[in-house]
Nucleic acid binder design. Sequence first.
RNA 1: GGGGGAAUGUCCCGAGCGGCAAAGGGGGCGGACUGUAAAUCCGCUGGCUAAGCCUUCGUAGGUUCGAGUCCUACUUCCCCCA
Length: 418
Amino acid sequence: MTGDFKPKSEFLRVLIERGFIHQCSDFAGVDEKALAGGLTAYIGFDCTASSLHVGSMLPIMMLRWLQKTGGKPIALMGGGTTRVGDPSGKDEARKLLTVEQIETNKDGIRQVFDKFLTFGDGASDAIMIDNAEWLTKLNYIDFLRDVGRHFSVNRMMSMDSVKMRLERDQELSFIEFNYMCLQAYDFVEINKRFGCTLQMGGSDQWGNIVTGIDLGRRMGAPQLYALTAPLLTTSSGAKMGKTASGAVWLNADMLSPYGYWQFWRNCEDGDVSRFLKLFTELPLDEINRLGGLDGAELNEAKKVLANEATALLHGRAAAEAAAETARKTFEEGVLADDLPSVALPAAEAIGMGVLSAFVRAGLVASTGEARRQIKGGGLRLNDEPVMDEKSALTAANFKDGVAKLSLGKKKHVLLRAE
RNA sequence: GGGGGAAUGUCCCGAGCGGCAAAGGGGGCGGACUGUAAAUCCGCUGGCUAAGCCUUCGUAGGUUCGAGUCCUACUUCCCCCA
């Protein structure tokens, strides 16, 4: 997509080299801005959950690179748009989030940004803003007069996202239709307030961003630019960010650093060097060396990936601890102390049926599932396969008050009797 | 306004002459093989105090020994005519 464009700015050079770019409305234009210094760019984030997940890492890294190369990143929280509720889920009309929930979510998300960006009042300090600030103050009539008249329904109908829905006879509510207008307006408003001229986002945002550029032109804003990142899939085509145990959250209270480390460690072979470029800051020649490893040696590259990615999010110490836990658990088969653990009173723990023990550990959802897993040989107690579903935990199972319960080869939980 | 369809296992898609815990797929989980990878093969994929019991097919009633299946009303969605 970048063609043979030769960027002069460090910002674009890094993004292109590392594979962050899917499409850009005007490479030369963005390059010039970045070179002149003081390039300000923003990316919009949903605040429907109290944490972002790995899917958001790509845009976050783009903002980080922007800051590192001298630009000013803006993280836009969709507090205003979230308030309308996204009706794209087709069955039950999704519950609207309350203002307080949105605020709580913003706080959770803010914690992640603090780790990747430097916030403050300086020229290249990052800022976080919420579109509720201007969207909620909009007056419908004024909005129609000043902004709405610039939108052509004909054009909106021809946009891929809309066309697809119509072709498939899928619901497309008026609200959703209006999202485009609000998002486009955001761009213009942010330009007015912060002199921001570039919006970045996932490739699915292309249409919205370009609509914003168009609106800016009609409303007399300076030239605006769009830059999108590729949609991330694993090399076998699956969507990224979902794994075994659900979404890969960025906040530590929703997914431990160890779990996060494991996510990267378990990536597919074909993804390693791509991920190293996108999610770590290792120099490219180092990445090329790692990516060139063959077969089993590639596991070393995966460890580097896991270490670096985890260090960026949770800090170097947490990353090393996770690596150490993994090493003990997988390479030595020794019991590592900081595997995820569940504590319960000794009186209750000893004599507890294996089935409920695994349920308590959170490894299986029900005793029924535990039974099935036992039949399939998937449950282990202190590394010994559980054969009898009627057996119970004994004092002997707790070495130093700790019993290790495992589901499959990768998921381990320590049961602590206290 | 009139006429005709549709809603199924709490991840999704989808079959289902009145005997149904309900076909098949995708996804997910587990096992084997490996390298904590991919591919491949195999098993599982409502709950429980488990040879039994309980809860599930849009909602509420009804017919029946027995209803996902038939009847009535309602809700939501789609299509055709006006």
